[in-house]
Design a protein around this nucleic acid. Structure first.
Lengths: 236, 236
DNA sequence: CAAATAGTGTCTGTAAGACAGTATGCC
DNA sequence: GGCATACTGTCTTACAGACACTATTTG
């Protein structure tokens, strides 16, 4: 009896979402507590099954809306990878998943999910310690790496911020995702010099102490030239 | 009657392979002629259905072996993306595919596929003109882009070459995938200076004309620092 | 005033790109 | 020698990173 049957196998497919944001300088991910087996009571990435007539992108967009109330066209949604180890989900029929990365500003809070599941922002460091259901630890790790790579070459960092933000806010994004400290003066110059990355609004924002920071909004550029390099420390 | 049913849908899943190589300076992809509907007689990427007990990576490795005789651990195999548009495959049950990128040296020729399908290397430019079955045009485009990005930051270019190669061979890889011309002297210095990219074997190879080029083999480094940038022309 | 954060100026090392010039093969 | 290809040297410009310094706020 061969372990690998020659028959083509039909499977159920889910789209799982890694929705990242920055809350008070910390990288956070939206997690839900599973209400039903398998892994009932454990934390997991939000997600759901592919339905007839849908592409996986549409499934992901629908889940995003159901879990957070955000329309998918308001933020980036991109594939991270497909996870298909035969033992990744104990259910039968077999379940494979396509993971999507979404980047969101600090939201008012996922309004008590219409899906009735308890959804909440969890620091990524904490999620890694606790451990997630299924193979979601690996998915989260891959998604954070993908986000880190995108920060290098695109202006996606502004998607982590609200409509108006300071250069310090933007630097906090890079520092949280890359887990490094960046030189403030050099970062400031690089960002403000890059063509179409940020546009000054003229406003300023006071904090408790110190000189108020100038406010910016996202510029029209999508790719960031020259890239923001952190390859010296090349992990991934 | 909603277009999107609320029922979770079971689907069949394939792994499709984009196997790239360089033949006389031209980027080529391994294509098969389909013997059965849908798209019978049309060119398509090699691939096959996920079987019970297999991950998609294992499916891809098995198809690679069946189509080319190459063992998967001899070359890179990595996910490009999953394609799931509802109308991408007319068959029922519905079929979605996970595309993999493989990079191969110029092989002796895919030994008359054990799968009995006519497999052959086709220049990518030609494949784009002719058009492929299913959504394989989009998959091919995405895979070539992914390969181009990998060339920037990894030493994967050596995987396109045989065990021994000249710097000119290596440069041809970059020029074919990126569709640019690179400065020969600068490329030479950059590659030979990069730590662990290439190692001189001491041998030389004569061509018809001119000074024989020194031979190299792949070095131990996997990531390329500093990266080989072509971001000035940033397409993708 | 001190403390704190925002932002600018300047210097140094490294690397990219342009391209002149040298080396070494075949006819 | 002529020609083609491989390779080296050198110059210019651009950018990363370090860090001294100035600016503007609160207390």
């Amino acid at each position: 009896m061969p372990r690998v049957s020659r028959a083509r196998q039909q499977v159920a497919v889910t789209a799982d979402l890694v929705i990242l944001t920055i809350r008070s300088g910390e990288l956070c991910v939206l997690l839900v507590e599973r209400g039903v087996p398998p892994f009932a009571g454990r934390l997991a990435l939000p997600g759901g099954f592919l339905r007839g007539g849908e592409s996986l992108e549409e499934t992901a967009a629908r889940e995003l809306r159901e879990e957070t109330g955000i329309a998918a066209d308001e933020l980036h949604l991109e594939q991270v990878g497909t996870y298909s180890a035969p033992d990744r989900d104990p259910r039968d029929p077999r379940v494979i998943t396509c993971a999507f990365l979404a980047i969101a500003p600090d939201l008012p809070l996922p309004a008590a999910g219409s899906d009735a599941r308890a959804a909440s922002w969890t620091p990524v460091a904490e999620a890694r310690e606790t451990g997630l259901a299924f193979d979601h630890d690996a998915i989260l790790r891959d998604a954070v790496r993908a986000a880190g790579r995108k920060l290098q070459f695109t202006t996606i960092a502004t998607a982590f911020c609200g409509a108006e933000f300071t250069i310090g806010d933007l630097r906090a994004v890079y520092e949280a995702v890359w887990e490094v400290e960046l030189d403030k003066p050099n970062f400031h110059r690089k960002v403000t010099d890059a063509d179409g990355f940020v546009i000054p609004t003229g406003g300023r924002r006071s904090s408790a102490n110190g000189r108020p920071a100038a406010l910016y909004r996202a510029g029209p550029a999508e790719s960031l030239v020259p890239p923001m390099m952190w390859s010296r420390n090349a992990r991934s």
